[in-house]
Design a protein around this nucleic acid. Structure first.
Length: 501
RNA sequence: GGCGCUAUCGUCUAGGGGACUAGGACGGGGCCCUCUCAAGGCCCAAACACGGGUUCGAAUCCCGUUAGCGCUACCA
């Protein structure tokens, strides 16, 4: 369809966007940061929602700071989150020859030039300008270096950098950002920036443009700390005669103090959260809400829902503060929302890692184990909470929490009497079910003229060693007759020992 | 300093000229439920940065101020 009607339809449907080739381009100088993960997520969501390819490029041109370990951490983080990339990873460092070729093209066309100014001279000029309260902007003055002298220096092998010549000094470089509206930079404010170092390796802006062109990237979605790089990159596209991609600049993530998120804010690596027992989908859900909203009151979403709802219109312009409390809450939501069969492997891995039980022993009592996980997940915010709570049901013996003992076993003789009576009552129970057990224990409390709590709390300590647990009858059922009676027996021994001494 | 970006409860946000007495969520406080802890339910406190315009009418549009953040490298 063509003509005015097609235009009308397109302009009315704000939720439709063209398919795009996007990329996530981290530099391997550390772990995968939550900010990076969120950038990756938005790129990934865009492609899942509107089509295209999500590419991964490792920006390792800064050889001094890049490490293989960091590259691995980035892969692991993305894989854990489930943000898979659609084509083989591109390593920027491997594209050195193309970068140099692009620089040469620019040089040959007179759109870039060699600059023999030493670092020391540059520093001095900057300091000078600063002292006068001015700003130093590098511009080649053609009179500064005659052509024959440049040739001489080249022959001599003098070190030089290649700078891009900012065109059209009186012009403006601007673009329509998907997140912001129009952003414009006067060209006069842009430095003649370096594109090739004196060691003949490319600088970020050149490498990015060269690679984005080679990879066919049509939408660049990245942090808004790159806004001031964008005019430079747009100029480079122009000089190379290539069509511009679209740009979307995402807001930063800050710590609780409003400053850029860093290590002193606590855990900022995706891996930290993985090891704390966070669920990847909860992490994704939380991150998505940091700088994006589907509109209305929607908050807790499955991955599928996030994909369906995603649209650049909901992207926020303002930096968001990372609130670990809400992340935990979100994780709790996902933990109770997800199916038991999806949660089970995650919990099992953590339990096995903790040494509490083996995978085989859990598999043997699969149904029982699922019921246990279901019972414990209600009061857990992270997977590790479940592991901690699971100990009284998996281990043969437990330790008594001193606080629990002090609080609930204060009156040793009374508790000894009570626990002995409880044991005897339970010994007579024929059907080990919650309702039967409840009836039995409540009538026991009645006979002693006390409320249920007075009986259940000391019993809870005997069974779990703790003051907190699921409902006492659930605990009895989950532990089973043998283990429960064993625990009570142990408690009686323990209390008797105290009385004797 | 220059350039750029941003501005709604403490935090994440809804809202896009009248539906606003500004909604939801986290966190906080209270109550209910209750054998403990959670979960759940109900309730409370809590915001349109400021000043000018435009308009019959502004949280919403424009300008300015202020504040915060980012960039200002032969880092990415």
């Amino acid at each position: 369809m063509t003509g005015p009607f097609a235009f009308l339809i397109l302009s009315c449907d704000m939720s439709t966007h063209p398919a795009a080739r996007v990329r996530f381009a981290p530099s391997p100088t550390g772990y995968l940061h939550v900010g990076g993960a969120r950038t990756a997520l938005f790129n990934w969501l865009y492609v899942r929602r509107f089509g295209g390819q999500f590419l991964l490029r490792v920006e390792d041109t800064d050889r001094a700071r890049s490490t293989d370990e960091s590259t691995r951490a980035i892969f692991e983080g993305l894989e854990w989150l489930g943000l898979g990339w659609d084509e083989p990873v591109v390593y920027q460092g491997a594209n050195l020859e193309r970068h140099r070729a692009d620089v040469k093209t620019l040089l040959d066309a007179g759109l870039a030039y060699r600059d023999f100014t030493s670092q020391a001279t540059l520093d001095a000029r900057r300091a000078d300008a600063q002292a006068r309260g001015e700003i130093y902007k590098y511009r080649r003055e053609w009179a500064e270096l005659p052509l024959h002298e440049e040739e001489q220096r080249l022959e001599r092998g003098d070190p030089y950098v290649v700078r891009f010549r900012v065109p059209d000094e009186s012009g403006v470089t601007e673009w329509d950002d998907l997140v912001h509206e129009r952003i414009a930079f006067p060209n006069k404010d842009v430095d003649d920036f370096v594109i090739l170092r004196s060691d003949r390796t490319p600088i970020y802006n050149l490498a990015v443009v060269s690679d984005d062109i080679a990879m066919g990237v049509t939408l660049v979605m990245r942090g808004d700390d790159h806004i001031s790089n964008t005019p430079k990159q747009i100029m480079l596209y122009g000089a190379l005669g290539r069509p511009l991609p679209r740009f979307a600049h995402l807001p930063m993530i800050h710590g609780l103090d409003g400053k850029k998120l860093s290590k002193r804010h606590g855990a900022t690596a995706v891996g930290d959260y993985q090891h704390e027992g966070l669920l990847p989908h909860a992490m994704l859900n939380f991150l998505a809400l940091l700088g994006w909203s589907p509109g209305g009151d929607r908050e807790v979403m499955s991955l599928t829902e996030m994909i369906e709802l995603f649209s650049p219109e909901g992207l926020q312009r303002k930096a968001a503060i990372f609130d670990p409390k809400k992340l935990e809450w979100m994780n709790g939501q996902h933990m109770s929302m997800m199916s038991l069969s999806d949660l089970e492997p995650v919990v099992t891995r953590a339990i096995v890692a903790s040494g509490l039980a083996t995978a085989e022993s859990l598999a043997e009592r699969h149904d029982w184990y699922l019921r246990l996980v279901d019972l414990l997940r209600v009061r857990a915010r992270v997977v590790d909470d479940i592991v901690r709570q699971a100990a009284p049901y998996l281990a043969r013996d437990i330790e008594y929490d001193p606080e629990a003992v002090a609080k609930q076993w204060k009156d040793r003789n009374a508790n000894l009497t009570l626990l002995t009576a409880t044991r005897d009552a339970l010994l007579g129970v024929t059907s080990w079910e919650a309702t039967t057990l409840e009836a039995e224990l409540r009538s026991l409390a009645d006979r002693h003229g006390i409320g249920g709590g007075k009986l259940f709390q000391p019993l809870r300590v005997a069974l779990t060693g703790l003051t907190v647990s699921p409902g006492i009858f659930d605990v009895l059922v989950m532990q089973g007759r043998d283990l429960a009676l064993h625990r009570i027996e142990r408690a009686i021994d323990y209390l008797s020992g105290l009385v004797d001494s």
